[in-house]
Design a binder for these strands. Structure first.
Length: 263
DNA sequence: GTTGAGCGTT
């Protein structure tokens, strides 16, 4: 039974994390456990998998209790053929929580917290970002990349990259479309700022205000605007502007200082 | 049903 990673990290404080790469996508912790356990005491084995599909990513983390055993496993299992694939075993560079790792050993840099850390603000480390930046797999397929890259210089790599960019660039339009949203948000923030200034008439037009707070909907405004009416009214005119002037809120840039009619 | 650089979970 594989109870590894079922309930998060069991007890990692003096364990050595080994990174196993080049493993098959079907290799599980159970398959690596006997392999690594033979060379030392395996504390825990964790294989990151995709959230969308739930399949293994192609590498696993094996935590040993002692460094000598871990090193032995690295020397012995490194290059071993597992499931028809040559795996690569090496000491993990990064920790699960970005902790300090020395030679693969996880050293807890956190204070002992004898009861003095609970008075601090429990600032959330991670909200929902997880590791989106790296969460998405680099690329589904990349036939022969290292070898070519190793053999050739960056020139080849650049060439390939450009070629790929031309073929498809999912992040290209994304990058461009992002500026607009931000601008909109900023403008909204500014609008509010003006309103505030007009109301108080004492606030300085300083821009050191926290845009994050302003980003939140003060009245329950949806963070995301409704879809473009252009889509659903495809073929018909958009009678949204002069059709229903009744419930039309001044979403336009109308910094009316007084909104008593609606508010 | 595929894929193959890299660094992790409750």
């Amino acid at each position: 039974m594989s109870h590894f990673g079922r309930s998060g990290p069991p007890d990692i404080k003096d364990t050595y994390s080994l990174l196993v790469l080049n493993i098959t996508f079907r290799t599980t912790a159970d398959d690596l456990f006997p392999l690594f356990d033979k060379y030392g005491k395996v504390v825990d084995i964790f294989i990151p998998r995709d959230r969308r599909t739930g399949e293994s990513r192609g590498f696993a983390f094996v935590r040993y209790k002692y460094a000598d055993e871990a090193q032995k496993a690295v020397d012995k299992l490194d290059g071993r053929n597992v499931d028809g694939r040559e795996i690569m075993v090496q000491f993990a560079k990064y920790g699960p929580n970005a902790e300090r790792i020395h030679k693969g050993r996880i050293v807890e840099a956190l204070p002992k917290s004898r009861g003095r850390s609970r008075s601090r603000s429990p600032k959330p480390k991670y909200r929902d970002d997880y590791r989106d930046k790296d969460y998405r797999r680099r690329s589904r397929s990349r036939s022969k990349g290292r070898y070519e890259r190793d053999r050739n210089h960056e020139r080849e790599r650049d060439y390939r990259r450009r070629s790929r960019s031309r073929s498809m660039s999912p992040d290209y339009h994304k990058s461009h479309g992002r500026g607009r949203g931000y601008d909109d948000e900023r403008e909204r923030s500014r609008s509010r700022s003006i309103d505030s200034a007009s109301d108080r008439r004492s606030l300085s037009p300083r821009r050191s205000m926290s845009p994050r707070k302003s980003s939140l909907s003060p009245r329950g405004s949806p963070p995301y605007r409704d879809e473009s009416p252009n889509k659903r009214s495809s073929g018909k005119r958009s009678p949204s502007r002069s059709a229903s002037p009744k419930g039309r809120r001044a979403i336009s840039r109308s910094p009316s200082p007084r909104n008593s009619d609606e508010d």
